[in-house]
Simulated assay, not measured.
Amino acid sequence: MARTLVLIAGPSGSGKSRITSLAADGERAVALSLDDFYRDLDHPGLPMTPMGIPDWDDVACWDGDLAVETLRTLLRDGRAEVPVYDISLSRRVGSRTLELGAADIVLAEGIFAIQTLDAARAAGLEVEALWLDRRRAANFLRRLSRDLQEHRKPPLVLLRRGWSLYRAEPRLRQAALAAGFRGMSMRRALGSMKRR
């Protein structure tokens, strides 16, 4: 069976997890969060922010090799072991088996989807790449509300990080489009996935 990887990128708070949960019906498509491939807080050499915490927006905090190998295994074999990461603890807390069953689409989302694209293509995977275009101010508010509700980090850290992400968003979008992602609204992206 031919299977396709759909990478969904966008700034934090843009709705990547939401769109994958709406589109992943378990019959034709399943979802995978690339955030589950973050490295543990005590992993040696993690890049640090001026606030003295790991820079979770730096790709060096993320295990891209494991993510691509897991995606390759999933698309080839129809099942793979996927780590379970707890953002509030900044560490992996276990793993789970993800099975595709009859599904032929894997929807993978996360802030490092951009970095995943070239590596996935180099691994011979069939990949489609979508960037969620949504208003920056709305992304900021959605992200802050979500992170406060989930107690991801202390509030001051969330505000500082949120402001930094807000400022970086145009550069991130430019990098995604240059890498080969197609920019689109939530509605259009969801429609394109449902028409596959």
Score class of each variant (00 low, 15 high):
77 D>T: 01
78 G>F: 11
78 G>Y: 11
78 G>D: 07
78 G>R: 05
79 R>F: 10
82 V>M: 14
86 D>S: 13
87 I>F: 15
88 S>H: 03
90 S>I: 01
91 R>V: 04
92 R>T: 05
93 V>P: 03
94 G>S: 02
96 R>D: 04
96 R>Y: 09
97 T>H: 01
99 E>M: 01
99 E>V: 03
100 L>I: 06
102 A>L: 09
103 A>H: 06
104 D>Q: 13
105 I>K: 11
107 L>E: 09
110 G>M: 07
110 G>I: 07
111 I>M: 10
114 I>F: 00
116 T>Q: 08
116 T>V: 14
117 L>H: 01
120 A>Q: 01
121 R>M: 10
121 R>F: 02
121 R>E: 13
122 A>E: 10
122 A>R: 08
123 A>N: 04
125 L>I: 03
126 E>K: 05
129 A>H: 04
130 L>Q: 08
130 L>H: 11
132 L>H: 03
133 D>P: 02
135 R>S: 10
137 A>E: 14
138 A>E: 15
142 R>Q: 09
143 R>K: 06
145 S>H: 15
145 S>L: 15
145 S>A: 15
146 R>Y: 14
146 R>H: 14
147 D>N: 14
150 E>S: 13
150 E>P: 01
151 H>A: 14
151 H>F: 07
151 H>S: 11
152 R>H: 01
154 P>D: 11
155 P>R: 13
155 P>L: 12
156 L>V: 12
157 V>S: 07
158 L>I: 07
158 L>R: 06
158 L>F: 01
159 L>S: 04
160 R>F: 00
163 W>V: 06
163 W>Q: 04
163 W>F: 03
164 S>V: 01
164 S>I: 00
165 L>K: 00
165 L>Q: 13
